[in-house]
């Protein structure tokens, strides 16, 4: 553990710096703060918490506001192995008579979450987009996409803009995903308009990717977008490397190498001199973590089914289960 300055760090740090500059020995330094504490009792180990969950049983998406809220709450906590359960439940609602009321409630909830909890708004818009509702859904996603960006707020020096602008644009990027996923002329029209004229790069970038993905990344789709990207000088986004869900080195690496062969100008041009190459055996000063407090997940074994095979150490094999999507066991 390194030595750090205590509560009076302000004064002591300044004094210590002055003393050091004069060749004096280091001044008094104190140890770590007292340990944190809590009035609550410990929870069960996380693996037990997880084991108690009733996986793969989403609540039905009915046309009521209550059922929609219940589904959103379930979906928010759903784990990777439940992704297809959520998609199936949303598709059932989207293809039934409750599609419009479900879309309307999702829209109202998402509008309410804008500016108060963006992580919730992202989730609600993800469900709304997946619903593929061509009327209420389309209208809601369009309204959110074109909500004017804030002109005041908390200015961030790194962004050179208001934090609120980035937050809303991030949510609007999720809305554009839903519009593209409609795969309809009306949805595409909004996506194309966003590519050409949305004020945020965040949204334009997502719109380009969403349009291409929903059109099979075809040469025709790229040709369609090329003139729309020129206004902002964003032609390179047409060739952008996408790390697809579930994609690993076998397909991602060749794709990246081909991209760099096509665009050698994108290699970074910085740092050709100066700096040090870190050694390979610097001894870290780290504290070993506590036991996994009941986690049975084997960190060498992937959590997603496609990644299971081949991910275990030699002599062990991977099996799928509901507690940890895959676990390494002795063969």
């Amino acid at each position: 553990m390194s030595v750090r300055f205590p509560g009076l760090r302000v004064a002591t740090a300044a004094i210590a710096a002055l003393a050091a500059s004069a060749g004096a020995p280091a001044l008094a330094q104190t140890q770590d703060p007292p340990p944190p504490k809590a009035w609550q009792k410990d929870s069960p180990p996380p693996v037990e918490i997880f084991a108690q969950r009733d996986l793969h049983h989403p609540p039905p998406l009915k046309g009521t506001r209550r059922s929609v809220k219940a589904f959103v709450a379930w979906a928010a906590r759903s784990v990777p192995s439940e992704r297809e359960d959520a998609r199936a439940a949303i598709a059932r609602a989207g293809n039934s008579s409750v599609s419009n009321p479900v879309a309307r409630h999702l829209c109202e909830l998402a509008q309410g979450a804008l500016g108060t909890d963006h992580t919730l708004a992202l989730l609600q818009l993800a469900i709304l987009g997946e619903l593929k509702n061509p009327t209420v859904g389309l209208g809601c996603l369009r309204d959110i996409l074109w909500t004017p960006l804030p002109t005041e707020g908390t200015r961030d020096v790194e962004l050179g803009d208001f934090i609120e602008v980035e937050s809303l644009a991030t949510v609007q990027a999720k809305a554009v995903d839903g519009l593209a996923y409609l795969r309809s002329p009306a949805g595409d029209a909004e996506v194309l308009k966003a590519i050409e004229s949305h004020p945020s790069r965040i949204v334009r970038a997502e719109a380009i990717d969403a349009y291409l993905w929903n059109h099979g990344d075809s040469p025709d789709a790229k040709a369609r977008l090329l003139p729309l990207t020129k206004g902002h000088g964003e032609e390179i986004f047409l060739d952008r490397v996408r790390k697809e869900d579930g994609e690993g080195a076998a397909t991602f690496d060749p794709k990246l190498e081909a991209f760099l062969r096509a665009h050698p100008e994108l290699q970074p041009t910085e740092d050709q001199q100066g700096g040090a190459n870190p050694p390979k055996n610097d001894k870290p000063d780290l504290i070993p973590p506590p036991p996994l407090t009941g986690f049975s997940f084997d960190p060498t074994c992937g959590a997603t089914a496609p990644a299971c095979n081949g991910s275990c150490p030699e002599g062990r094999r991977c099996v799928a289960n509901d507690v940890a999507a895959c676990t390494c066991v002795t063969q």
């Binding site: 992704r83 997946e130 952008r240």
Partner: peptide, 18 residues
């Protein structure tokens, strides 16, 4: 999308909403 001089960086994941 917005913080890289020689960007954009990789796109993370596909744009399917869910």
């Amino acid at each position: 999308a917005q913080r890289f001089i020689n960007g954009p960086g990789y796109k993370c994941g596909d744009p399917r909403p869910w």
